[in-house]
Measured scan of single mutants.
Amino acid sequence: GATAVSEWTERKTADGKTYYYNNRTLESTWEKPQELK
């Protein structure tokens, strides 16, 4: 079946920190989402 992984995108802030952005829920998080573990 379909997985939720594609909803999350790994992004970088202007100062180079990595965060994760969810295209479906429009939420962002510093922690790696469960779906990516």
Rank of each mutant, 00 (worst) to 15 (best):
E31W: 07
K37V: 15
R11I: 12
T18A: 05
W8E: 00
T9Q: 13
T18C: 04
E35R: 04
P33V: 03
L26A: 12
D15E: 09
Y21R: 03
A14F: 08
W30H: 06
S6N: 13
K32Y: 07
S6Y: 09
G16A: 02
S6F: 09
T3A: 15
G1R: 01
T29P: 01
T18D: 03
D15I: 03
E10F: 03
A14M: 09
N23A: 08
D15M: 05
Y21Q: 06
N23I: 15
E10Y: 04
N23W: 11
Y21K: 03
E27A: 06
A14P: 14
S28D: 04
E35Y: 05
E7R: 03
K37W: 15
T18H: 04
K17I: 09
A4S: 12
P33A: 02
L36Y: 11
T18S: 07
K32I: 11
G1H: 14
L36P: 05
A2N: 13
T29W: 05
A4F: 06
T9N: 07
A14N: 09
R24L: 15
T25A: 01
K32E: 08
T9R: 06
E35T: 07
A2P: 14
A4V: 15
G16Y: 01
T25P: 01
W8A: 00
L36N: 08
N22I: 00
K32T: 06
D15S: 10
W30Q: 05
K32G: 03
S28R: 10
A14G: 08
D15N: 10
W8T: 01
G16T: 00
K17D: 07
Y20A: 00
K32F: 05
N22H: 02
E7N: 06
R24S: 11
E35W: 05
K32Q: 08
R24E: 08
W8Q: 00
E35D: 10
Y20E: 00
G16Q: 03
G1A: 12
E31K: 08
N23T: 15
E27P: 00
N23D: 10
T29M: 09
T18W: 04
E35P: 06
W8I: 01
R24H: 12
T3L: 12
L26W: 09
K32H: 04
R24T: 12
K12V: 14
S28Q: 11
T9G: 05
G1Q: 13
G1K: 04
Y21N: 01
R24M: 11
E31P: 03
E27L: 07
P33W: 02
R24Y: 14
E31S: 08
Y19T: 02
K37F: 13
W8S: 00
L26P: 01
W30S: 07
Y20F: 08
L26Q: 15
K37A: 15
A4Q: 14
Y20T: 00
Y19W: 06
W8M: 00
R11F: 12
T9L: 07
T9K: 06
T25D: 03
Q34Y: 10
T3R: 01
R24N: 11
Q34I: 12
W8K: 00
Y19G: 01
G1C: 05
W30A: 05
G1V: 12
W8D: 01
P33K: 02
E31A: 08
Y19L: 04
W30K: 04
T13L: 04
G1F: 13
E7Q: 07
R24D: 08
T3V: 13
N22T: 00
V5A: 15
T3M: 12
S6A: 11
A14K: 11
K37P: 10
E10K: 04
R11T: 05
T13M: 05
A2I: 14
E31V: 11
W8L: 01
R11Q: 09
K37M: 15
N22R: 00
P33D: 02
R24F: 14
T3D: 13
T13Q: 04
G16W: 01
A4E: 13
T18M: 05
T18I: 14
P33N: 02
D15L: 05
K12T: 14
E27H: 05
D15Y: 07
E10D: 03
Y20N: 00
G16I: 00
Y20V: 00
A4I: 13
D15F: 06
R24A: 11
K32M: 12
Y21C: 05
E31T: 10
E7V: 05
N23E: 15
Y20R: 00
K37N: 13
W30D: 07
W30F: 15
D15T: 08
T25L: 03
K32D: 04
T29R: 11
K17S: 07
A2S: 13
E10L: 06
P33I: 02
Q34N: 13
V5N: 12
P33G: 02
Y20S: 00
N22A: 00
N23S: 11
K12A: 07
A2K: 06
A2G: 14
S28W: 15
A4H: 12
G16S: 02
G16V: 00
E7K: 03
Y20L: 01
Y20H: 02
K12D: 03
T29Q: 14
K17W: 06
R11P: 00
A14R: 08
Q34V: 12
K32W: 05
R24P: 01
R24Q: 12
K17Q: 10
E27D: 06
E27G: 04
A2H: 13
S28V: 15
N23F: 09
N23L: 12
L36M: 10
W8H: 01
E10G: 02
E35H: 08
T9S: 14
K32A: 07
Y19H: 03
L26K: 15
A14L: 10
T13W: 03
V5C: 07
E31G: 04
K17P: 01
T29I: 08
V5Q: 13
K37E: 14
E7S: 05
P33C: 03
G1Y: 10
Q34E: 15
A2V: 14
V5E: 13
E31D: 11
N23V: 14
L36R: 03
L26G: 15
T18N: 04
S28N: 05
E7F: 07
T18L: 09
E7W: 06
A4K: 05
Y19I: 05
E27Y: 04
Q34L: 13
T9I: 13
P33L: 02
E35I: 07
D15A: 07
L26T: 10
T9W: 06
P33S: 02
A14E: 12
Y21P: 00
V5K: 06
L26M: 15
N22Y: 00
S28F: 14
T25Y: 02
T25R: 01
T3P: 13
G1S: 14
E35F: 06
E27R: 04
Y19R: 01
V5R: 03
P33R: 01
W30I: 04
K37Q: 15
R11N: 05
Y21V: 09
Y21L: 04
A14D: 10
E10H: 03
S6G: 13
L26D: 12
K37Y: 14
K12P: 03
T13D: 14
E7C: 05
L26Y: 14
S28A: 11
A4L: 13
S6I: 09
A4M: 12
G16N: 05
N22P: 01
P33F: 01
V5L: 12
K12R: 11
S28T: 15
V5T: 13
D15G: 08
W30T: 08
N23R: 09
L36K: 04
A4G: 12
T18G: 02
E35Q: 09
R24V: 15
S28P: 03
E31F: 10
Y20P: 00
E31M: 08
E31Y: 10
Y21F: 15
Q34M: 12
G16E: 03
E7M: 06
T13N: 09
T3Q: 12
R11H: 12
Y21H: 08
T3W: 10
L26V: 03
E27M: 08
